[in-house]
Design a protein around this nucleic acid. Structure first.
Lengths: 110, 110
DNA sequence: TGACATACCTAGAATCACTAGGTATATTAT
DNA sequence: ATAATATACCTAGTGATTCTAGGTATGTCA
């Protein structure tokens, strides 16, 4: 389909970083919390996506020590990433609206 | 993710058949119309999905001659398929709601 | 000290949708 | 008449996305 390929993981990750810098593990926890545990992202899904976003200049990574003494890798949304997020969010709205429109054509589904 | 795997093509196809029996080509045209051309499903996507749904007993196929004299293969939603559609539609609502909830956490996206 | 949570990572498999072809008939334009 | 387009079905192979299933290592709590 045209624009079937909304990368949901990418969209959700970018939207998390729009609010504040986060590290990977935190994103997984936050995403679960904000979605009422509808999304339980796997590490095997998240980390490759983060690396891809970094390669594309959508996010920048930096290391920072946690109060516990552990090393964390934080990600920051770049200006380019912010613009991309806007596009992806708009694409999602369009996509979700279209699905809803199709479902509404069949009574008893919505 | 948990329930990341909503098969969008399957959901849309089943919802089309909830209204009336349709043949493949018609589904592509109807889906484009109902989604304001957001969805332009490819034949290479649709037909394998239809065959899969038939194999699983979600739809039943029958041949019927069109007024033009051409042979068409119509698909009919079975009771099992109807129940499955209800589940998938509910899963979609939950999924879409969760995405919206996450996006709403970041101002300026919704 | 053993279990669990935190925190990062990758290789390979599975799923889903697409590309790019194929076949064939009906309609419309030249 | 015939060429182009629309209708109508199909499949093999490819690419993209996400998952499974591991690995490494540190911190916390019972």
């Amino acid at each position: 389909m045209k624009r079937q390929n909304i990368d949901h993981t990418q969209l959700l990750v970018l939207s998390l970083l729009a609010g504040e810098d986060m590290y990977g593990y935190q994103m997984i926890v936050e995403l679960a919390r904000r979605s009422d545990h509808t999304f339980e992202m796997k590490e095997g899904t998240l980390y490759p996506v983060l690396h891809g976003l970094e390669r594309q200049g959508m996010v920048e990574a930096y290391e920072q020590e946690a109060p516990t003494g552990r090393q964390r890798k934080y990600y920051h949304l770049t200006r380019k990433g912010g613009a991309f997020l806007q596009e992806e969010a708009a694409a999602w709205q369009k996509y979700a609206g279209a699905v809803s429109a199709v479902l509404r054509c069949s009574p008893g589904l919505v």
